[in-house]
Design a protein around this nucleic acid. Structure first.
Lengths: 223, 223
DNA sequence: TAAATAATATGAGAAATCTCCTATTTTTGA
DNA sequence: TCAAAAATAGGAGATTTCTCATATTATTTA
């Protein structure tokens, strides 16, 4: 992890200002941090001392269960908060946050800003909206995970993450995210290939029948 | 549904004031509503025009999937908001809210209060805390549901809902809540009885081995 | 660059969970 | 108060998903 200092910090603050999120200046004590791919921004179980706001990059929220299983609860993208749970709640089991790509975020020290933040309407409104989306997203995933087999959830995930008709997520990550075993994921992917929804090309999968996958995904979503 | 008027309203506002949640008075346009057991406070898919705050009673959040399965996403208790998602988000699929018991709540009309609420620090701080708990709760349920079989989740649920050593939730409700089939729920309950964790007494189940159930529940919770 | 580590791949059998069916008992509403 | 609807109960067989074992192929790192 690298912390931007001096001129580099000044420039970054200028070019990626988040002043619109607050009604007071957070420049002085805020750090600008760069994390490498796979680095842990927050370690599971270790309360952070900062509220983070992600500017560039992607990260993942992980929790490890006592039976050894790991859940990838959600992805975090640019313009999202990290550590807001710890800002708000004294008691909270801190999840692990891992950078998926090179990541740059602002880090606001709790000790300097907590009180001010919790009194700042502008910030609270932002946070409220962020949390409502977060809660809604997880609730949707939760109820879908209980109501539909992997076939449907995977179809949805493939469509959401494919790039130019190519699906190439790591199986290992997808297992944690969809909460199924590696073995079973492979099994359903093979089925998709047998039905010609997908065609395997090396490590990637080429989407051959958008419609079929779309049908599977569609039945999950109330709109 | 009954709306309290006149003296009844005045008295109720006085005795169950929620003035501490706002920095302005909400008495004038706020309705006090009483819903009967099993009545729908909000119907699925129908955007409400009010922000509700529950004073007395219990309710359930339901969503119906296109495959006919129903998920009971969560319970709502006193001192919780309902309709806050619709207050904050233009686009949101409204879940159904059903009263489990006689329920009394305050109903703040959006058209009168939306702007004021979204600028009110006091309210936003309350809402923020509420949402953070809500998101955390669902995230926990979500990851647990993927990582543990019904045996563990049911043990936890029994301990949480049992009253004086007696578990007597409706199977139908529990299925929706834990996201399993009726048949399977019965099967695991029977197992608990065979292992003497529970003893069936008519429609109720008497907890015979707290410890065993506790063991099953414990492994789910990171603390 | 070799050795260690992570990711992919697949078989086989078992466990968890589901669907469908049928019956009985309770609760509810006209 | 009685018929209809809801809830409980359990059998049987099918699906979904898991665990474990074992190989092969990247990828990482000392």
């Amino acid at each position: 992890m690298e912390i931007y200092k001096g001129e580099k910090k000044r420039l970054y603050l200028e070019e990626h200002s988040i002043a619109h999120l607050f009604s007071f200046s957070i420049d002085e004590y805020t750090e600008i941090r760069e994390y490498k791919r796979d680095e842990w921004i927050i370690q599971e179980g270790m309360r952070p001392d900062f509220l983070f706001y992600m500017i560039e990059g992607k990260a993942k929220i992980y929790v490890t269960h006592q039976n050894g299983k790991v859940s990838l609860i959600n992805f975090i993208n640019a313009k999202e908060f990290i550590g807001e749970m710890e800002l708000l709640n004294e008691i909270y089991y801190t999840k692990g946050i891992q950078a998926t790509t090179k990541t740059i975020c602002f880090a606001l020290p709790f000790n300097r800003y907590r009180e001010k933040l919790l009194e700042d309407t502008k910030f609270l409104r932002e946070l409220t909206r962020f949390l409502s989306v977060k809660a809604t997203t997880i609730a949707a995933k939760y109820s879908q995970s209980l109501a539909f087999p992997l076939e449907n959830r995977l179809a949805d995930f493939i469509l959401q993450t494919a790039d130019e008709g190519i699906y190439k997520e790591k199986h290992v990550t997808v297992c944690d995210y969809l909460g199924v075993s590696y073995r079973h994921l492979l099994h359903v992917l093979t089925q998709f290939c047998e039905k010609s929804y997908l065609q395997k090309e090396g490590r990637n999968y080429h989407i051959k029948q958008y419609e079929s996958l779309s049908e599977l995904a569609k039945v999950m979503n109330n709109k």
